[in-house]
Design a protein around this nucleic acid. Structure first.
Length: 423
RNA sequence: GGAGAGAUGGCAGAGUGGUCGAUUGCGGCGGUCUUGAAAACCGCUGUACCGCAAGGUACCGGGGGUUCGAAUCCCUCUCUCUCCGCCA
């Protein structure tokens, strides 16, 4: 969430930035600042009364010690009155803080100055397009047909044992999956990201820390018995690794990566979007996460995008890079680049990575800070990106590298698969 | 699942009703000494909120209670550790 300080000191800029999301934040900002004013007034009152009470208590103690029992007793009654007033104000104060917190939670992150305004994905800015789209003509088969033809994925089996959106990978399909995970992790490791294997279920505090809760409650699988959530992305456990921490300046930057399955309910999805591997309830992903000093975070973001592009080049997939517009930008993000691969048979772009800088939005919720040059705690910037999400990569590999006599495996991947073709 | 112990500042670890926001050690910062460094010695060193400031308030796992006054007593929740049981 945004910091109160930012709203207080920089309100016009915040409001202008939020308007790029197509959001008129003025009423909410008014409300928050009004609550803030009330809160400060109430706090002053209650603090003064408490100071009075503390002084009285000390005096009573002294009176007892001095043996002046009568006087002490009379002052006791006096403090009793004070307490009632304090209690009432305390409750008022608590309510105000809660309201303010709730309102603050409704505000999305403030888009970076480079974010174009826009309503939807139509308005995203294509930053670059790379690689050649294969010319397959009418013979191009969609990946779900190829997956069936070469016995790589059994969608029906998944439906039987779990439900739609839970594919079963088999044979070379399973091996390809494992090879990609290993390939992505090796590349992340080489780029300086330390590998983690985090829990795949998290508590509500973690969900709140990275902003999935309360915003996306309905998108997560929730084990109510234990009040745990299946992770929708490794971002959640990985970023929460440093929740509540006060980092030393020289500990930054922190670079982590991890492979996890990801679980998403995807309520409300339908149609061609959910065909084959396009949209799943469970999928595999390697995620990269960084904690940065504010002045370095945008350079880090560029580095992460470049890392992901390198992976796509090695996989020999045509791809493009998008700078998300305000309307398509995630709730918690300040700037996001999406990477999309070309799906040769479906003839459309598939999002395979989303690389974001959250600035202090997550860190504020996480209370993840570092000691700055003045020795004062300051919120870090958090970033993350998929590097990469598997299903659509698999879809694109199958579709783009299909030939009359099988699927060609890119050279970079062959050491990992142990085969150079699926036939 | 049963029994017991515990949760205190960046870390370690004292403190069982009245200047305790908290002894001490480590770490960090500054200084003395030194050609430089180490060692030694001296000093400083939690966070948040309100306030121009002086200063005030809150925080000793979370929540509630007792009391004029709670880190300290009571209740409750969560978590950790030890032992037992079960188990990959």
């Amino acid at each position: 969430m945004l910091t109160l300080q930012a709203l207080r000191h920089d309100r016009p800029a915040v409001e202008a930035a939020l308007s790029k999301r197509g959001l008129d934040a003025a009423p909410l900002l008014d409300q928050i600042l009004e609550l803030d004013l009330q809160r400060r007034t109430t706090q002053k009152e209650v603090d003064d009364l408490k100071a009075e009470q503390n002084a009285a208590s000390r005096a009573i103690g002294d009176l007892f010690k001095a043996g002046k029992k009568e006087e002490a007793e009379s002052r006791r009654a006096e403090v009793g009155l004070l307490k009632e007033r304090i209690q009432a104000l305390d409750e008022k104060q608590k309510a105000l803080i809660q309201q303010q917190e709730d309102a603050l939670l409704e505000l999305p992150n403030r888009p970076h100055e480079s974010v174009p305004s826009g309503q939807s994905e139509e308005d995203n800015e294509v930053v670059a397009e790379e690689g050649d789209k294969p010319n397959l003509g009418d013979s191009a088969k969609p990946h779900w047909e190829l997956a069936d033809q070469y016995k790589l994925i059994d969608f029906e089996a998944g439906v039987k044992i779990s439900g739609a959106g839970f594919p079963v990978y088999r044979g070379k399909g399973a091996k390809l999956q494992r090879a990609l995970i290993q390939f992505f992790l090796d590349r992340a490791d080489a780029a300086g990201y330390e590998e983690f294997i985090p829990p795949h279920v998290v508590n509500a505090d973690s969900g709140r820390g990275t902003g999935q809760l309360p915003d996306k409650e309905g998108q997560m699988y929730h084990c109510t018995e234990d009040d745990l959530y299946l992770i929708p992305t490794a971002e959640v456990p990985l970023t929460n690794l440093f929740r509540g921490d006060l980092l030393k300046s020289d500990e930054l930057p922190i670079q982590l990566c991890g492979y996890t399955p990801c679980f998403r309910r995807e309520a409300g999805s339908y149609g061609k979007d959910v065909r084959g591997l396009n949209r799943l309830h469970q999928f595999d992903k390697v995620e990269i996460v960084r904690f940065e000093k504010p002045e370095n975070s945008y350079a880090a973001l560029d580095g992460m995008v470049e890392h992901v592009r390198g992976l796509l080049r090695e996989l020999e997939l045509p791809f493009r890079t998008l700078r998300l517009c305000g309307g398509d930008l995630g709730f918690t993000s300040a700037l996001t680049f999406d990477l999309e691969v070309w799906s040769a048979a479906q003839e459309r772009w598939l999002e395979v990575s989303s690389v974001s800088n959250f600035e202090t939005y997550q860190a504020n919720r996480l209370q993840c800070r570092f000691r700055n040059a003045e020795g004062k705690p300051e919120l870090v910037h958090t970033l993350n990106g998929s590097a990469l999400a598997l299903p659509r990569i698999v879809a694109a590999l199958l579709e783009n590298h299909q030939t009359a006599d099988g699927i060609r495996i890119p050279a970079a991947l062959q050491p990992y698969t142990g085969f150079d073709r699926i036939a």
